[in-house]
Write a protein that binds this DNA or RNA. Structure first.
Lengths: 200, 200
DNA sequence: CCGCTGACGAGACGCACCGTCTTGTCGGCT
DNA sequence: AGCCGACAAGACGGTGCGTCTCGTCAGCGG
């Protein structure tokens, strides 16, 4: 027994860790997620398989940490949503930027892979939401709260639910290929969400 | 060459087809999607592997057809959305029913598996949307058109986009575990979508 | 300065499943 | 009655899995 003596993280090789992240992201980009294998990552990184199995439990986890790491070293931290006082314009601008990001292949392939894995693996899905999705959504919460202060959003509205009216449709179209994605589309979503479907 | 002489579908064994559907659904329910293998399905169905490879190209496709078949023989066809004249109430009722369905394990496991596969495999994703998702969404389109006739929804609204305001948030929470799902939540979505976030 | 310790690179190992193939059977058309 | 092709069964080489055994190497504690 006692096979799983936790490895000593103070002796962990930083060089190997970085090499594994780089190899994982490169492979996913080049051959796609399903054809990316742990053996392949190890070979590409010049690392023994055991080193991967020692620190991660699945290729999905490797990819998620690699992706998180990429985000950290790139964007110091997520940007806030502009607050010009014109709520509709601010939301439309951010959603247009999101549309562009969703179409950037560097971002698209690993995100899709992680999202797909999260659909079927609840633990990983929750981690994905917590680490990647929710922080971005909280930016909308903040902007909507500010709009409530300004009287542009009714005070009894729950911002965490409200943001889903325009974010989730875009997310679903992207994830499921259930419809085309364009600036016009996201602009429309903002208008519908703010002013409702019923006559005013 | 000419290795792929298309099989003669008039000589196809109906018994094997059914046995394969049953085995696939049973296995996915019992051991989960990743552990469901083509070999396993063949063995369980009492069928040669070649019979599966002859008619389908992946386990995802087998499962999708099995799932479609299940739907066809169960609900003769998808039900329409009630039209009592009270749009909000009708939508809330249908979404509540959807909440229940999403939590039914018989439905949940294969749906998740197919949705996940569709995220990463565009061709299958589009088929999934076309065969399973879009037909249900069209019911909302019909109901919203009727509401436009009745003057409960503004005439310039595009129903296909409008429905996403309340359907997509639910879908995303379910798919991505990005939030809890309840009657209260879906009721709120309908209210927000119909009357908007801005003061009236 | 040396020796111990544990992560490291490399890769062998048995296993499960892949997708293709071969063989002999059997049922439906002609 | 004979033919044709789908069928069940399973052999086959290939690939990646996850575990394991090596020998090496870096750091730290004595």
């Amino acid at each position: 027994m006692a096979k799983n003596v936790a490895p000593d993280s103070t002796r962990r090789s930083e060089k190997s860790r970085r090499a594994i992240y780089d190899a994982a992201l490169a492979l996913v980009g080049e051959v796609g997620y399903p054809k990316t294998t742990i053996e392949g990552i190890a070979a590409r990184a010049g690392v023994g398989k055991q080193t991967i199995y020692r620190w991660w439990s699945s290729k999905a986890e490797v990819l998620m940490e690699a992706f998180l790491d990429l985000g950290e070293q790139a964007g110091g931290e997520s940007y806030a949503i502009p607050d010009t006082g014109d709520l509709a314009a601010d939301l439309k601008a951010v959603l247009r930027a999101t549309v562009d990001e969703l179409k950037d292949p560097r971002f698209e392939v690993p995100s899709r892979a992680l999202a797909a894995e999260g659909v079927v693996n609840e633990e990983l899905g929750r981690k994905f939401v917590e680490k990647l999705l929710e922080p971005s959504l909280q930016l909308y919460v903040a902007r909507l709260r500010s709009a409530q202060q300004a009287g542009d959003v009714r005070p009894e509205i729950d911002p965490r639910i409200a943001l889903e009216l325009f974010v989730s449709p875009l997310a679903q179209r992207w994830l499921q290929y259930s419809g085309p994605i364009s600036y016009e589309y996201t602009d429309t979503l903002v208008d519908y969400a703010l002013y409702g479907l019923a006559p005013r």
